[in-house]
Amino acid sequence: MFRDALLVAGKDLRIEVRSKVVLNQIGPFSLVVLLLFAFALDPDRGFLQEATPGLFWIAVLLSALVVVQRSYALESVDAGRDALRLSGLDPAGVFLGKAGASFVVLMALEVGLIIGVRLMYGASLRGWPLLLVTTLTATVGLVAAGTIYGALAAGLRVRETLLPLLFLPVVAPVMIGGTRAFGAALDGSSAEGWRWCGLLGTFAVAYVALGMLLFESLLEDS
């Protein structure tokens, strides 16, 4: 299963390295989002700094959506989905592989976003252990949920419009948990933040488990 996961993740990441869609399109997209927040909220009055945790996680959520869409767009051409299904790879492995590749991509985007909020919003990065653990657990949860919902929407004519509707309400706990944990870290009140981390961890474990369990049903259809 883990060998299959590495194969699939390797394939997705190799395509990314060669096509450079993440570097040329998705990365700049998340920076555009940061810019838009600055336009919406007056940058001189400290709103941006105050709202940094929330704005950061909205930017992450939107980026995650694009990453998931990209992850399944890779296979929409040349009957890639059929090929993956016929390859005989373990469905749980395929799930872990696709989620793993998205994890790497999304983590890279988040590093860019962290640097972005540090430089552009003037956010201080106190309490970095909490920030790091929050980012890791939240990202696992996001890519696990995203990979399931991406598969659910894949191959349908309405996939681009259906995916955000399915995905975004489901990750409400990640949005709330990530924002609160970041807020706690930046305020220096870590104890509350770790509790939120626990919730993010539960979400991540639940969705990884559900994904491994349900992916077989999702790979079945054309």
Partner: peptide
């Protein structure tokens, strides 16, 4: 069916978080 199952499974987590 997968969406229904996931939605129902998500409700306790959303409930806890809100």
């Amino acid at each position: 069916a997968v969406i229904g199952l996931l939605a129902a499974a998500d409700v306790p987590l959303i409930r806890l978080s809100v």
